[in-house]
Amino acid sequence: MRLFATLATLVVLLFVAALLIGPAGIAPGTALRALIWGGDGPLTLVMREIRLPRALLAVMIGGSLGMAGAAMQGYLRNPLADPGLIGVSSSAALGAVLAIQTGLAATFAFGLPIAALSGALIGVTLVLVLAGPRGGALTLILAGIAISALAGALTALVLNLSPNPFAANEIVFWMMGSLSDRSMTHVWIALPLIAVGSLLLMRLPRALDALTLGEDAAAAMGINLIRLRLTVIFGTAAVVGAGVAVAGAIGFVGLVVPHLLRRYVGARPGQLLWASALGGAAMLLTADLAVRLILPARDLKLGVVTALVGAPLFLHLIYRTRREGL
């Protein structure tokens, strides 16, 4: 319980910091007053339309990515699993890239998120058709790799054939993932899917715990494996699809956070789900703060920071895991 209190406090503090720190340099008291009570003038606009959606998206996306990562690792019983494994992030990215390339994103405000969500839906459908509702972890991993590779190749093809260097440039930057210049509209686009996906994943703790003993033993203890598989796939697809649609591809959160927190929950996959949700929110809030503080003028991309922080952390964890023989 102490871990949860600590993580929850951390998320709240980081959330407030995300609201108070920014290039506009508003005093904390004034900023919070403008946020809560509103009023005329640019201050309220900055707080409500720029900082609030950004902080909310960091919590929503970070939290759901952390939870999806824990669910995926628990389901596959593999600490190296990642929510992107089932091919949803790459297919959502492909949808977004097509929207940028065709100009859909420029002509219609929600063109990009909708195209990304369509891509995610097609991706998850293909994975389900390939892997089937029954069957083991291996078929799901293979189907995910195949769909990721295909979507990646098609994305490269779009870039390759792009006649417009500005579009290509935009695509590359978009794929790095970012939370800057997002509005409350983006929050409303992502919220329903992230809520549904998170609700699905929240139902999993008992089944994931039971799966510690293997699929056969879990099934004999009353766990419905088909329902578990579909819940993991749809829950992950919903939160990852929504996240990519509004923020681009943000990697490493779903991989590193569960790995980092596993030891603090006694390695129980069910508990890890909650811990990783809080941890993911904290990690993305921190990364987004870093983006704003380190190179405020250069528009450092969020996905770049999470990868830069995540990869060495992950290497360290692998080293520690090897040393402990876990």
């Binding site: 019983r77 715990d209 799966l211 510690t212 003993l213 203890m221 766990i223 006694g266 390695a267 129980r268």
Partner: peptide, 17 residues
Amino acid sequence: EIAWPVTVETLVALGRT
């Protein structure tokens, strides 16, 4: 199969599922 490094008591308690 014991997939995760859980404690003995946690593992035995899974029988209550």
